[in-house]
Amino acid sequence: MKLAYYPGCTMKTDAKNFDESTYSSAEALGIELIEPTRWNCCGTVHALAKDNVMNYLAPIRNLIRVEQMNEEELVDDKRVVTQCAMCYNTLKRANLAAKADPDKMGKIRDIMEKEPNYQGSVSVVHMLELIKGLGWDEFKSKVVKPLDGLKVSPYYGCLLLRPREYGIDDPDHPTVMEDLIEALGAEVVDNPYKAKCCGAYHAVHMKEVAADLSHRILRQAQEAGAELIVTACPLCQFNLGDRQDEIKKHQREFEGIPVVYYTQLMALAFGKEGTGFEQNVPDPVRVLEEKGLL
């Protein structure tokens, strides 16, 4: 199956391990991901003010690229898969809001005069939705190295599940990540904070606030017995993982816990290269080696 794949800026740099493990785990599932040849930053996060038009240009431009890919028969259908939860939310919301408002769509087309008109045919899906659609039996059949004995806590973050209308799962009782972890052979450690905000963009100018929110999430997972936490968003990964040093400044007793992208565990369990663990902070290799998985 050939599908259009929209990576987002951060996937090519700070979240390269997410991007690489996405490609390798998708390959195992028989999905060929194809990026548009020309794409731009999606302009995360979605602009909530109802009169905003400018912030729609960036996401809609990307959707036009996907329509062009369809015309050139580079991909099998009109879906675009994203991995970054923030890009997913931004593209999806812009798509639906523009399609529902012909007036706004007209303005968008006017400003983007040099582009072909967006026909509104593209639908935005997140990789987890795609995986769920394949069926868990199919998914399990690709596992060559079950992650036995690894205690993993899921972390959804905000924009995968909320607002309710755009979420990929029930925001109160999501299950897709837990199902995925189990299907990989690992043990799910539930965390009541699995869908609480990590602090997101407060990491830029209100570091301590973001560190505090992230700390709560990490500590809940640790107290429940988790050895590893999985994320689906580069900003969540940054706040929960890279910023653990910042957390330690405010919480002396906090001991680090590794945080990885869920696709990295998929690539590991599917026996594929490109797990990208060297890029993760803090280092997850020790825990994985102790479990005999590396």
Binding site: W39, N40, C41, M54, N55, L57, A58, R61, M112, K114
Partner: peptide, 22 residues
């Protein structure tokens, strides 16, 4: 960058300015 392409429209050298900023 809003990907609005105003820069590209202003360029007298026909450069894809937005694309290189992106």
């Amino acid at each position: 960058c809003l990907s609005c392409n105003t820069c590209t429209k202003a360029c007298p050298q026909d450069i894809q300015v937005m694309d290189y900023v992106q």
